[in-house]
Each structure stands twice: as structure tokens, then as C-alpha cells.
Design a protein around this nucleic acid. Sequence first.
DNA 1: CTAAAGTGTTACCGGTCAGTAACACTACTC
DNA 2: GAGTAGTGTTACTGACCGGTAACACTTTAG
Lengths: 225, 225
Amino acid sequence: MNTMTKTLSTGSGTSEAAVPKVRVRDRILDTARGLFYRYGLRAVGVEAIASEAGTNKMSFYRCFPSKDELIAEYLREQGRGYWDWWDAAIAPHAGDARRQLEALFDNYMTLTCKDGSRGCSFGNAVVELPEGDHPGRRVIEQHKAEMRGRLRTLSSEAGATDPEALGDTLMLLMEGGYLTRLSFCSQGPISVAGKAVRTLLDAHIPAVAPTARTPRAASSKRSKA
Amino acid sequence: MNTMTKTLSTGSGTSEAAVPKVRVRDRILDTARGLFYRYGLRAVGVEAIASEAGTNKMSFYRCFPSKDELIAEYLREQGRGYWDWWDAAIAPHAGDARRQLEALFDNYMTLTCKDGSRGCSFGNAVVELPEGDHPGRRVIEQHKAEMRGRLRTLSSEAGATDPEALGDTLMLLMEGGYLTRLSFCSQGPISVAGKAVRTLLDAHIPAVAPTARTPRAASSKRSKA
DNA sequence: CTAAAGTGTTACCGGTCAGTAACACTACTC
DNA sequence: GAGTAGTGTTACTGACCGGTAACACTTTAG
């Protein structure tokens, strides 16, 4: 029949007998996340998703009106997870935007270089959805716009003289890392993202008025020159 | 029948009557280039390609052993065009690697921002070909490795203190621009690529020995502060 | 002129796709 | 206990997919 019934049968177990307590909809969405991310949107059929989730196509269509809507929901779900990760990455350095950016990129590198990584769900999805009216496109464009906005805001808070330029440059860096991840096994260009972001930060953030010394980014980083 | 017979019937015209003189194989490959780039690999079927090329599926399979092989050939063709463009972009500044890089990125920006652009054929293709054994993957990985190598070489020739780091950073920038192009209509983050490359060049290339002062990036870039 | 290569045409194969109809069963709620 | 919502199962539709068989035709090369 299907190949993952047992794998997914561990329910939340509110009562005693922990059988497949998880709602079909959640199981499907969870399975879709894995399959869509790994193999792509068009490569995965609804039947494959349903059976991998331990159910069938009929139950699938009781939860989702169409595959396209599932794709949109998948992207929304990925978005929620993404911002959770983002917020967690910058939280330890609240108040110091420069450190937040550095931490964000360090975190991003280790995550994106991991074995199972296939880059960015949204970037991959938009390649497969050229049609402008697909319900998933709205989610993607919104997500990327939010990403751009956040990087610009952080750049501004970090004291960049041209925060829009810095934010956009950081975005190019990030997106480039996601994309190159698909063509290079390991030790790809993304390896330099950490250094690159620091170089850009140095170039865009003026040293604070040298009335005295060691105001901000002049200590450890300047030692390079 | 088909919709483009007339459009493609302009042959090379070695003789007089310029009917569909172009070989079927070339017509198919040319049509595939347009369709694959615009709509993606999986979204376009061989029948659609054949009929758009003014022929049919049977003639298609006389020229190409399979769709996967057509995809590989499509990518090889794109690669040839890409390096032609690349060489043409840097040719006017032979001998001055820094200018070559600037010209390359300027050219890249105007091209990638154009209306019909859908980013990088290779980047888009690799998203749709997760299977490691697809004949197209070899072409993609080879292309991206070549790209990385060229950027590193140019960085070295430009006098960068760490040419590998600069080259890889430029690659991230470029790839990021290609990818973001798909999510932003116009005025996307790629708009800053020109400025970004110059900032990075300034940061990575030491000012030529001034025999006196100004050790590294203290001239033009520092004037911003 | 003849032969071969290239091409067009129609019909077909087995498989998969997204999406639906109809019916049986279980579990929880009231 | 009855009702209802959620779920499983089987079978199906119509469309499309990549790929092939068989045959007729035209163009080119010798």
C-alpha cells in the first residue's frame, strides 16, 4: 500500500493509545513540505503525497481544494518556519543590528550548507511557477519583499550610510548562496558569505565619530588591514 | 495544425526560394530554448516543442533520443551563448581586469533586468533537476564551476588580496541577482549590483603602492564617511 | 535517374496526472 | 444510543505525458 504509514503513526497522544492521532490535513501538509522541498513542485503528485502521508487522494481533496492551493499553503507554512528561524537567529543580539546581521548570516550558512539542504523553498518554487496568477506566487513575492524589507531595516539600524543599498546587497548575497547550493556539493561559493557580509558591513557603516576611539566596528575588524 | 510554421519558415536562404530551409533539429533546439527558458523544463512537453517548431513528435525523436537529452543539449546551447556574451562584455577592457568585472556586471544588470528575462537558465534548470544522474546536471555543474573559476581569475588579475573570496562573493552577487529577478518585477535588489561590485572591488583591491601614504581602501571609499 | 536521407502524418502504447463519485467505516459529541 | 464529522477504499474520468510503429512523401547526392 503506502510506505510510510508506520513512520507517521506517532500521534500527539492526548489520551493513551497513540495511534495516528494527527489530523489528516496536518499529515498531508507535513509530508508535502518534505516532498516539495526535496523533489520540486511539479515532480510530486498529489497521490504520492497522500500515500506518503498514510492516506489517499480522496482524503486529500477533502482537505485541500486543489494541488495549487496545497502549494500555496505549503509556502505559507514554510514562511512561518522561516521567520521563526530568522527571529531566533537575531534574538541573542537584540539592540546591536550589526551583530544581528552577522549572526543571521552565520546561522544561514551553517543551515544552508547542511546535507539535506536544497536552498530556499521560495526561490525554488518561483522557478516552477512562471504563471503570474498562481496562488503560490503571491506568497512568494510577499515573502521576498518582507525579506528585503527586514534586511534594509537591519542595515538602517546598523548605521549604514545607504541602508537600502546595503540591505539589497545582502539580499543578493543570501539569494546567491541559496541558489549556488544546488550546483555545488560542498565548499561552494556560499562559504565566503560570512566574510563577505562583514566586508560589506565595514564598507557601509562609517566608524562613529572618532572623538575618542573604539566606538564600534573599529576594533576587531580593522585589524585585517 | 501548428501555430508557428510561418514564423520559423525564414530559412538561411542559400538558394533563392527561402522556405523552411532550416534543419528540423535546429528549429527544435531553437524552439526548445525559448519554451524551456520561459516556462521551465517540466512544464513543456515534447509535443508542444515539436509543433511550435513546425514539425511533429516523430521528427523530434529522429533528432533527439529523449527529452532528457534535449534538455542537456539545450543547456549546452545556452552555455555557448552565455560565454559568447561574457567574452563580448569584457573584451573592450582587455588588460584591465577591474574594468572588465565592472563592465561584466553592468552588462549583466541591463540584460537581466530586461522584460523577457527569467534569470539564469542553469540556475532555473538545476531547481527542476534534483536527480543527480540527469544528463543535464553535468552541464549545469560544469557551467557553474567555470563561472566561479572565471570570476576568481578576473579577481586575481584585478589584484585582489584574496581573489578566491572576491570571486566567490561576486558569484553570490550574480546568482542572487538572477534568482531575485524572478520574484521582483522591476527595481528589485539586483539594481544595486553595480554599486555592490564596486564596493567589493574597493574593499578587496589595495590601492597601488602610493610610495607614501594611503595603505589600502582609504581613498575613494573612505571619503564616504 | 536512382537511391538514400530527411521529413510529414496518423495512429497507437502504457503510464501518470489532477480531480470526482459512491459507499463503508470509525470515533467523537450530544 | 443516535447523529455527525472525519476517514478509508475502490473505481473511475478525461487529459496529457514520453516514446514508437508504419507508411507516404520530398529533397538531395551519386
